[in-house]
Design a protein around this nucleic acid. Structure first.
Lengths: 114, 114
DNA sequence: TCTATATTCAACCACATGGATGAATTAGAG
DNA sequence: CTCTAATTCATCCATGTGGTTGAATATAGA
């Protein structure tokens, strides 16, 4: 779990995952959108691989990567434990009120509700 | 999002969140289960706070912490994008086969499928 | 075989992280 | 006011991270 969340804690790697969601990609293809060296991208890919989020298949001199959703499912499951906290009536009410607050930046007469 | 996943990438902090799921906790209470200094626990709590996962209310000399589920909901939502990958028929089949494989450690005749 | 391509490896650097420890801050309790 | 409790601050340390660069490895192609 540690390595999974750690891997997700970086925008570069999250976008790589997003790219992999469209299908198989080579290391160069994954690196292409970023202004970093291939070696740096290679390290990111290794982090994803170590977290089990990415599987690599070497065909010739090219490394083809594909998404492995297993750890994402585990993370999703872990977070699911807390689902009740953001779907509870109290929390929904609280967020509604906060949203109300944001869309009404004139604190002329706060306290109509609640 | 970075800071949220970063905060979740540590077992100590994940357990703190789990403790907070049972209700309000003080800094000392959150630190108690761990064999680390209060200062170290305080740092963990600050990481959670910075990620927006924890709200702090100072009453007297005691800091009371409670869970803020908002960022967890965001993370959950982010992961939800990939849900189709672990609920697709192909993936379910693949995981079933892998589970079959694990429960049958005699590789006498691999290659029946595929 | 020679060369270009795809990728990793090995150092190196700046900075973040998780921990310890001891002093500082703040506030109840007597 | 003084003592103690709750917490942070400041400093230090070892290790990890994200990045660079240049060399190494391995394969495809002429």
């Amino acid at each position: 779990m540690n390595s999974v969340f750690r891997a997700l804690a970086d925008g570069t790697r999250r976008q790589m995952l997003h790219d992999l969601a469209d299908g198989e990609r080579t290391v160069s293809q994954l690196a292409e959108p970023f202004a970093i060296s291939l070696a740096a991208a290679s390290k990111h890919i290794k982090v994803l691989e170590h977290a089990g989020l990415l599987r690599r298949e070497v065909r010739g001199r090219t490394h083809f990567c594909r998404l492995d959703p297993g750890p994402l499912a585990s993370a999703y499951e872990w977070l699911g434990f807390y689902e009740r906290f953001w779907t509870s009536r109290l929390d929904v009410l609280e967020r509604l009120l906060r949203k109300e607050d944001e869309s009404r930046p004139q604190p002329s007469k706060q306290g109509d509700d609640q």
